[in-house]
Simulated scan of single mutants.
Amino acid sequence: MAALLLFRGIALARSRGSVVCRVRLGDRAWQIGVARYVGGELHWIPFIGLRLRPRHAIARRGLTVSSRRRLASGEGPAGYWAVVCSAERGPLSLAMSEDALTGFLAWLESAPPSAHLDAV
């Protein structure tokens, strides 16, 4: 069973269009997983678990970056950045490599202008 979970984690990390990303909701601990961009959402799938469906689907609409900083030593892998975001569901933090952070910020900025407006 452990070998199957290890294989699942490696397959998720190497799948096309995925980046290793940690997520923290509120004051909880960091959880490691894989993030994928699917249309207007960022899907986050944990490394540990049996389901291949995302545990969190973070909508680009209404998502804003409040701050970003390098992770302190002992907080996560060296060279990772923490991004604190405000989302419709509440505060959210993501931790990722510098390359993944660049992709995340480009994905946020590439939203069409109407994506930030609420439909009337």
Rank of each mutant, 00 (worst) to 15 (best):
E41A: 07
A111I: 02
R53F: 05
A100N: 03
I58L: 14
R16F: 10
R36H: 14
L52W: 14
V84Q: 15
L92C: 07
A82P: 03
F47C: 13
G33D: 08
V83M: 11
S97A: 13
R55H: 07
S73P: 15
H43D: 13
G33E: 10
E109H: 12
F7Q: 13
V84S: 15
L6Y: 07
L42W: 04
V38P: 00
H43P: 02
G49S: 08
R69M: 08
A78R: 13
S114N: 11
I48Y: 06
I45D: 00
H116M: 10
E75Y: 03
P112H: 04
A11T: 10
T102I: 08
A13Y: 00
R24L: 03
A72T: 08
S15L: 01
G33I: 11
G33F: 07
G39T: 00
G62T: 10
F47T: 08
G74K: 06
S114Y: 14
A115Y: 01
G17S: 05
S18K: 09
R70W: 10
G62D: 03
C21M: 15
Y80E: 09
V20C: 13
V38Q: 12
G62W: 09
R14A: 12
G90F: 04
I10Y: 08
P112R: 10
T102P: 03
I45R: 05
L63W: 01
L105T: 12
R51L: 07
W81L: 15
R61S: 12
W30C: 11
A87P: 05
A95L: 10
S66A: 13
I45Y: 02
A78W: 02
R22N: 08
E98R: 13
S93G: 00
R16M: 04
I10S: 11
T102M: 07
Y80V: 00
R69F: 02
T64W: 02
A57D: 01
H43W: 13
S18Y: 00
I10L: 15
G76T: 11
H116P: 00
R36Y: 05
S73T: 12
V65I: 15
A59D: 14
A13Q: 06
L92D: 04
V84G: 03
L6R: 13
S18W: 00
Y37I: 09
R55W: 10
L12Q: 11
S93M: 15
P112V: 08
F104T: 10
E109S: 14
G79I: 08
L108P: 02
F47R: 07
D27F: 06
R28D: 15
R14P: 00
S110Y: 03
R69I: 03
P54W: 01
L71C: 06
G79H: 03
L105I: 14
R89C: 11
T102W: 09
L42N: 00
G17K: 00
V19D: 12
L105R: 12
R8Y: 03
R28F: 02
R24I: 05
L25D: 10
S97I: 04
R8N: 09
Y80T: 09
S67M: 05
A78S: 12
G76M: 05
L71V: 04
F7K: 13
A115V: 02
P77M: 06
R8K: 15
I32F: 04
D99S: 14
G26I: 07
D27Q: 13
S73W: 05
P46E: 05
A82K: 07
R16D: 14
W107K: 08
H43K: 05
